[in-house]
Computed example of a mutant assay.
Amino acid sequence: MTIPIDDALARLDGALARLEAAVARRLDADAAPDDRDAELAIMGEDRARLAAALDLASARLATVEATTDQVGRRLDRAIEAVEGVLHPAEETHRPA
């Protein structure tokens, strides 16, 4: 015949073992970074890197556009000068 106190102590020991295992699992889960948090951190870093690259590319594009405009104006002036040398009579008869 089992004494009721012995049964209660056995059940208590089992419950404590399960509780200790659950606490250990929880501590392990809290200690290891969540995959989602790590992925979000990586995405944040990628976003910052891509934003910096986009800013740099935009600045380069603005510089290229300004240079292209300047070169276009210089070419127009050069073409007009060459045409003026090649056809000086037409310059005097051109309507204004």
Rank of each mutant, 00 (worst) to 15 (best):
M1S: 07
T2V: 14
I3Y: 03
P4W: 06
P4M: 00
A10Y: 10
L12R: 15
L12T: 11
L12S: 13
R18Q: 05
L19T: 14
L19C: 13
L19F: 00
L19A: 12
A21H: 07
V23H: 05
A24V: 09
A29F: 13
A29E: 14
D30Q: 07
D30E: 14
D30R: 14
A31N: 12
P33C: 03
D34E: 06
D35T: 07
D35M: 02
D35R: 11
R36C: 01
A38T: 13
I42S: 05
M43T: 08
G44D: 12
E45T: 02
D46K: 09
D46M: 10
D46Q: 10
D46L: 06
A48K: 12
A48N: 12
R49I: 01
R49K: 11
L50S: 03
A51W: 03
A52W: 01
A53G: 13
A53D: 15
L54T: 15
A57T: 09
A59G: 15
R60E: 06
A62R: 11
T63Y: 03
T63L: 00
V64C: 04
E65C: 06
A66G: 04
A66Y: 00
D69G: 04
Q70K: 05
Q70H: 05
Q70T: 01
G72N: 09
G72T: 07
R73H: 05
E80M: 05
E80Q: 11
V82T: 10
E83Q: 15
E83N: 14
E83A: 09
L86S: 15
H87V: 09
P88R: 01
P88M: 02
A89P: 09
E90N: 05
T92P: 06
H93Q: 03
P95S: 05
